[in-house]
């Protein structure tokens, strides 16, 4: 029997959030945390609310805080997170809670949109693809794979403090994804939009983002590259 403690909050009926306990029969299986949530919703309480879609770690819907650490519920096995037979599940920290485990991600998405996350190249495109060498393409590895789950940005104290002004690790990872793309010509414009004291420089290298990224990506390293580009540009 697994003891699961869930963060509950329904804005229509609850004055304040509370923790609710469920005893879940796992049959000794090493289920994923998402499977446990599905069990609770199907067999204990149909009003338990969370997001989920692909259930294989590629869509980024089910970023949650499990026993104190952010991650994706669908690819986090109980054996990786349960301590002393107990699992505490909370919404991603730092964002407004809509209901139970569902957070309002508007600020997170706004930071993503702010970095103009699309290729910019005004030169006329050839009739086939733009050529790019395997080495140039390799510069995008570790960047383009981001699934926008927000595990990183919501584990970042700088983002908690300035979610409206600090782009945050997810947004900056994508900012660098376009700066690093040999096909993109907007480098100057992109850098000038990032050179204020907040957008990039609020990163203090705490590396929580790196520790929690379910895709094994390294936003801190990407931020380091952006800093270098900004500093080189200034001198």
């Amino acid at each position: 029997m697994l003891q699961v403690s869930l963060y509950r909050y329904n804005p229509e009926t609850d004055d304040a959030p509370f923790m609710q306990d469920f005893a879940v029969e796992t049959g000794g299986r090493d289920l994923m945390v998402l499977d446990v949530l599905e069990l609770i919703k199907a067999e204990h309480d149909g009003s338990v609310t969370y997001r989920r879609s692909c259930r294989e770690g590629v869509c980024g819907s089910d970023g949650l805080n499990m026993n104190g650490k952010n991650g994706l519920a669908c690819i986090t096995p109980l054996s990786d997170t349960v301590k002393h037979g107990r699992l505490v599940i909370r919404p991603l920290p730092g964002l407004p809670v809509i209901r139970d485990l569902v957070v309002d991600m508007s600020l997170f998405y706004a930071q993503y949109e702010k970095i103009q996350p699309y290729l910019q190249n005004p030169t006329p495109a050839p009739t086939i693809e733009r050529l790019q060498s395997p080495e140039e393409r390799a510069q995008l590895d570790g960047l383009y794979e981001c699934i926008l789950c927000a595990c990183c940005s919501t584990s970042c104290p700088s983002f908690w403090w300035n979610p409206d002004r600090f782009v945050g690790p997810a947004g900056l990872l994508q900012a660098y994804r376009f700066l690093a793309d040999s096909r993109d010509t907007a480098t100057e414009d992109r850098l000038s939009k990032l050179e204020d004291p907040f957008s990039v420089f609020r990163c203090h290298g705490i590396q929580n983002c790196v520790n929690v990224c379910p895709k094994g990506l390294n936003p801190t390293k990407a931020i380091g590259h952006i800093r270098t580009m900004l500093l080189n540009r200034a001198t």
């Binding site: 290729l119 693809e129 050529l131 060498s133 393409r137 995008l140």
Partner: peptide
Amino acid sequence: AIFELEHMGLPFSRTDEGRI
């Protein structure tokens, strides 16, 4: 339609010739 996607930025893997 594929070349349009590439022009939009889709990060295709590449051959030694730089093609998709």
